[in-house]
């Protein structure tokens, strides 16, 4: 059981070695980076071996300038005195696919749907990857940096200013 962040990261590194492609523990938000293919295994490891049983937040970011999209997972333990870690996964804009972890943390179900809806990252293996916030027939992913709000929606003028 990893207690503080250093031990946690050491344990993850021991198990995954070079598959953790980047490590930054100095910033405000310490993170590890991995490839999409590693993620389901890493997620299971974090939950079962490190006791991080809560997926607190899943942020999708469009990094812009040809840097693709990024998913940031904040994984925590229910015992809030313990440290969590954030995992970043970067995917290209033309093929943004990350394996789903809804089987690891149930809450990932809605989070991944939201991330697909707003940022447009496709989560492979999700049982029901449909829009959650926007209307079903909405077009585009609003939080992409190149998104343009539709002029009309169902005949109703949308951009008025």
């Amino acid at each position: 059981m990893a207690m503080d962040r250093t031990t946690l990261v050491a344990e993850v590194e021991k198990a995954f070695g070079a598959r953790i492609t980047e490590k930054d523990l100095a910033g405000f938000e310490p993170f590890l980076r991995c490839e999409p293919a590693t993620w389901p295994e890493l997620a299971r490891f974090l939950k079962e071996r490190c006791g991080l049983d809560m997926l607190c937040c899943l942020t999708g970011v469009d990094r812009g300038k040809g840097q693709g999209l990024e998913a940031i997972y904040n994984v925590e333990a229910c015992d809030a005195k313990r440290c969590g870690i954030s995992i970043r996964i970067r995917v290209p804009l033309d093929n943004p696919v990350i394996p789903s972890v809804e089987k690891v943390w149930q809450t990932a179900d809605w989070h991944e749907r939201e991330c697909w809806d707003l940022v447009g990252i496709r989560f492979e293996g999700h049982h029901n990857l449909v829009r959650i916030l926007c209307a079903e027939d909405w077009e585009g992913h609003p939080l992409r940096k190149d998104y343009k709000s539709p002029d009309r929606y169902h005949g109703i003028k949308n951009n008025v200013v």
Binding site: D53, M54, L55, C56, C78, W105, Q106, T107
Partner: peptide, 10 residues
């Protein structure tokens, strides 16, 4: 709401 479910759903 069992504890395990609650934690699993965040």
């Amino acid at each position: 709401l069992p504890v395990k479910t609650a934690i699993d759903y965040g």
